[in-house]
Structures are given as structure tokens and as C-alpha cells.
Simulated scan of single mutants.
Amino acid sequence: MTDLTASPRTDPLSLYRYRDGLYAVDLITAALQMDFFTWLASHPSSLQQICAHHGFSPRPVDVMMTLFATHGWVMQKDGVFHLSATGQEHLHSKSEWFLGPYYASLHDRPIARDYLEVLRTGKPAGWSGDKAAFDWHKAMEQEDFARSFTAAMDCRGRYLAQALAKSLDLKGRKKLLDIGAGSGIYACCIAAQHPHLQATVFDQAPVDRIAVKLIVERGCADRVRVTTGNMFEGLPLDCDVHLYSNVLHDWDVKEVRELLAISHASLPPGGLLIIHDAFIHADKTGPQHVAEYSCLLMHSTQGKCYSTGEYAELLVEAGFTPGDYQDTVVGRGFMVAVKN
């Protein structure tokens, strides 16, 4: 039986950062290929104006501008983006210090090419830049991909989940629903840390079958069970805690709004909602590593990393009272909210 309350002896932060930030350089490359920074210098613009001029979609542009703001290459004042002094000197094509040619050899990287299309359409590209592949959401319906991706999220989740479990106050709570749960690692770690709690792992086929096997192997089957379903079609009604761990970031605002409404309808009064994720600051000036991770999500899913302010607004709109954000490990953290 695995000890799901144990932490590693060493800090894996750098290993997470390499993988999380992998696609950021390609988004920078795509912007330089368009000579975007030179245009912005002459046309300070709001996000909406950038979209209108270039024919871009709001979600990828928000991710792009957040990335640039966290690096200090652009500044935002009263909703209008301006090129910063660093941007003027090193990203403007008329500057003697322009670094565009340094990135020119990266223009043909598949992910950099993908971004030009994602910016225009707002739709995710093929997984890992494979044009023949399904986007992530469709790929998860395929047995081989679902098994591989679930294994990846499971090994990541072992560290993240026990850190989350140790940070949560779940006194007086009875049953947790882990929504879009994948392997069930979060439900298992939380159950291990909070012995009074029962848990249900909720996911679609074929992920549900993978979860059942792993939960049994971890010795958690007596307190963690699996229920199969589509989270957009309704949730079980017997849980007083809902967990969305690294789930909402896969979806655009419309779908996030829909999922929060479904949770509100399914939870009892006073029910607790937990969002565990990588969060952007409310003013969207950081953290830099989360802005870089958001590039990967924007490329391959329908989502992005949301800011604490965006989540708070969506939670209030759905009928919850949101709490403050709390850090855990490797740039992740959580927000809790209570059903009014």
C-alpha cells in the first residue's frame, strides 16, 4: 500500500518548470514573426482592439498579453497595452538592439506555426503539434491516449495532491466529489489525509476503468469509489465537497461558467467548492511561470490559466462566496468557495 501522506525529500520545482513552460518560447517566436511588438508600439491597444485589428480570438490573445506583461515587455494602463522600454529596445524591429533575428530560426517549429492558427481561430491545435492528432478533449476518448495522459497526470498529481490535502480544512465535511478526476490520485490523497472523509472519483470512459485499477492498487477502494459520467450532464447529489483539480483550466469561460453552475445545483447549502490549479495574479502581471504554463494550455486545450480575480467573479456569479487564494507547491494553489 502506498503512503499517500508522504512528501518527497527533495524539491522537484525545476523539473515541473521545464515541462510547464515548454511552449512559451514558441508563442514569443510567433509574435516576433508577425512583428507584433513593432505594431503595438505605434498602436497602443486594448485586448479587444488587438483582436479586432488582427482578426484574433480573445482567449489566446489574453494568454499572449499576460505572458508579455509578466516579462515586463508590455504594460497595461486603463485597459490599454503599451510597449515597455524593454520591448521598445529589444522587440521593436527598428531598434538597433532588436532580437527578432535571434528567434527567426525557430519560426518553423510546429508549435510556433500552430500559434498563428490558434490566435486566429481560438481553437486548440493537435496534441504536441501533431496536425493529424485529435485535440486533447477528443483524444481523451481514445484508450491509448487516455491511458498515457492519465499516467502523466497521476505521477504529477502524487506530489501536488498530498500538498493540497495537507492544506485543506475539511472538518465537518463528509464526502468529496473529485470531478474530472483522472486516476483518482487527488481523491485518494485527500482521503488519506482526512480519514473521516469518503470520496467519489467522477470521470468518463475509458478513464474510469483506469482509475478503478489504480485506486485498488493504492489500497483506497474502501473509501474511494468511481462513478462514470459526463460532468457537463450533471453530477451526483450526495457530496458536500466538490473538487476541480487542474480541470477548469482546460475550458473556456463559457464552459467554466457552466460547470460552476452545475456544481452549485448539485451541492447542498453550505457545500464547499475547491479549485486547485495554477493561478494568474488578479492584475495579470504574474507569476511568470504560470503565464508560461498557460501558453501550453492555450495551445492544446480550450482553456488557459485563469486569474484569481476571474475565478472570484465567476464563483460569485454562480452563487458562491469565494475565499482567498492559498499557495501549495510548484506554482500551484487553491481557492475555496461556499455555496450561498
Score class of each variant (00 low, 15 high):
residue 156 R to P: 00
residue 150 T to D: 08
residue 157 G to S: 05
residue 119 L to G: 01
residue 121 T to V: 11
residue 134 F to M: 13
residue 116 L to P: 00
residue 107 H to C: 13
residue 174 K to I: 08
residue 142 Q to S: 12
residue 181 A to F: 04
residue 197 L to Q: 00
residue 155 C to Y: 11
residue 99 L to G: 14
residue 112 A to G: 01
residue 162 Q to G: 01
residue 114 D to W: 05
residue 132 A to E: 11
residue 194 H to F: 04
residue 112 A to S: 06
residue 99 L to R: 15
residue 180 G to A: 07
residue 190 I to N: 00
residue 172 G to Y: 03
residue 181 A to K: 04
residue 141 E to P: 03
residue 94 K to P: 10
residue 94 K to W: 05
residue 149 F to N: 12
residue 131 K to A: 15
residue 123 K to R: 14
residue 135 D to V: 11
residue 168 L to R: 01
residue 141 E to C: 10
residue 193 Q to E: 04
residue 104 A to V: 06
residue 191 A to Y: 00
residue 175 K to R: 15
residue 195 P to F: 02
residue 164 L to A: 00
residue 174 K to H: 13
residue 139 A to M: 03
residue 120 R to W: 12
residue 185 I to N: 03
residue 155 C to T: 13
residue 146 A to G: 06
residue 188 C to Y: 02
residue 139 A to H: 06
residue 169 D to G: 03
residue 140 M to K: 02
residue 143 E to S: 11
residue 106 L to T: 07
residue 196 H to R: 12
residue 101 P to L: 09
residue 187 A to Q: 08
residue 121 T to N: 08
residue 99 L to P: 05
residue 133 A to L: 06
residue 156 R to V: 10
residue 182 G to N: 06
residue 96 E to S: 14
residue 151 A to V: 10
residue 186 Y to K: 00
residue 160 L to T: 09
residue 150 T to N: 12
residue 109 R to V: 12
residue 128 S to E: 12
residue 137 H to T: 11
residue 127 W to R: 06
residue 177 L to K: 07
residue 181 A to Y: 06
residue 169 D to N: 10
residue 173 R to Q: 06
residue 133 A to Y: 00
residue 183 S to T: 03
residue 197 L to N: 01
residue 108 D to I: 08
residue 146 A to W: 05
residue 98 F to Y: 15
residue 111 I to L: 05
residue 167 S to T: 02
residue 123 K to C: 12
residue 178 D to Y: 00
residue 189 C to N: 04
residue 134 F to C: 15
residue 144 D to C: 09
residue 170 L to F: 05
residue 136 W to C: 14
residue 164 L to F: 00
residue 186 Y to Q: 01
residue 175 K to Y: 04
residue 170 L to H: 07
residue 186 Y to G: 00
residue 153 M to A: 08
residue 178 D to W: 03
residue 110 P to M: 09
residue 169 D to T: 06
residue 173 R to C: 07
residue 186 Y to L: 00
residue 113 R to L: 14
residue 163 A to S: 12
residue 156 R to F: 13
residue 112 A to D: 01
residue 91 L to V: 08
residue 129 G to S: 05
